[in-house]
Simulated assay, not measured.
Amino acid sequence: MWRTVLRLTPSFSIPIFRGTNVNDTNLLLERTPDVPQTGWERVKKMYSRNDYEEMSVELTTVIQSASCGAFIGAALGGFVSSRVAYLNFIENNQATIFKSTAQAKKQLQDYVTIAFAKGAYRWGWRLCFFTGLFSLTATTVSVYRGDTSLIEYMSAGALTGALYKIDMGLAATLVGAGLGTVLSAVAGLAILGILKVTGLSMDEIRKALYRLKEARENQYNQALEKSATIKNDELTKSHNEIVKELGERKIDDIN
């Protein structure tokens, strides 16, 4: 019954359990001899390096997501902690006598800076870990299935929510898993809706992000090469001037 309902349901109305309609065509999913055909083959390729010892497009996307989570977590945690520290310092030191205004400002700055660092560390690694775990789980399930749907988001949300509350007992773990499933389902519906409206697939987005990464690396390598060329040119010029001034000497003549 459910298979009949899903088969007859238009993909533009309820894009939940499958990303595209069965009659739609996607050139990225067409079978080719060099592309892994089974789910485990695709997962194995995802966790393997290519001939140039480069990570796969999927793992690169996971690392980018984790790095973005670390940056956002560090920024939010640092700003919130520094603001709380600033208010606490003003409240607790209203009757404190300082030798000078500079000393008070210095202590305030040190107090706020330490609080910012602690907050950035505390929230940065947590958001990095859970964002990376969520992205890794969702991407692995998606690669294994060869499609993008709500299943991978719900499974990743359940696993992440359970691990977040695992130190509080079994009941809290189940509550965290349920809450993570609900929140990830809402986020997954939003993502699938955006993909359907834009006509893109998650694989195309991963490849676009990977091309951006390659473009940044190429620009960085070109800048290094240009800097090295300029440096070598100046060094060669200086060497030629010294040789011209002092003359050439053989290695045997140097003590």
Rank of each mutant, 00 (worst) to 15 (best):
V175S: 11
K118N: 14
Q219T: 11
Y164R: 08
R216N: 08
N88S: 15
N221C: 02
R49H: 11
N21R: 05
A172W: 07
S65N: 06
V35I: 14
A172S: 11
L159C: 09
A138Y: 07
Y144V: 05
P36F: 02
K226D: 04
Y121E: 12
V35C: 13
R216W: 10
R126K: 12
R216P: 00
A120K: 02
A117T: 10
R83G: 04
M202Q: 03
A102S: 12
L209K: 09
G188Q: 01
I191Q: 10
I114W: 01
Y153V: 01
I166W: 13
F17Y: 15
D203R: 14
I97R: 00
F17H: 10
D34W: 15
A158E: 05
S100V: 00
G73I: 04
N92E: 14
S67R: 03
G188C: 03
G19F: 12
T236A: 05
G146K: 07
S238T: 09
L87Y: 11
G161S: 13
K237D: 02
T61Q: 06
T148C: 11
L108N: 03
K207N: 14
V175K: 14
G199E: 03
M46A: 00
P10A: 00
S149T: 07
L59S: 03
V80S: 07
T25H: 06
K99R: 05
T181D: 00
I14R: 13
D51F: 15
L59C: 10
N26R: 11
L159V: 07
R122F: 08
L212G: 09
A75I: 12
A190C: 12
S149Q: 02
L127E: 10
D233C: 05
D167A: 15
Y86N: 13
G178H: 07
N240R: 08
T9W: 00
R216G: 09
N93C: 00
A171W: 13
V243Y: 01
G161E: 12
Y220H: 02
Y153A: 10
S201Y: 12
G39S: 14
S65M: 14
W123T: 03
A120F: 04
C128K: 06
T96K: 03
V57P: 01
I191K: 06
G169E: 02
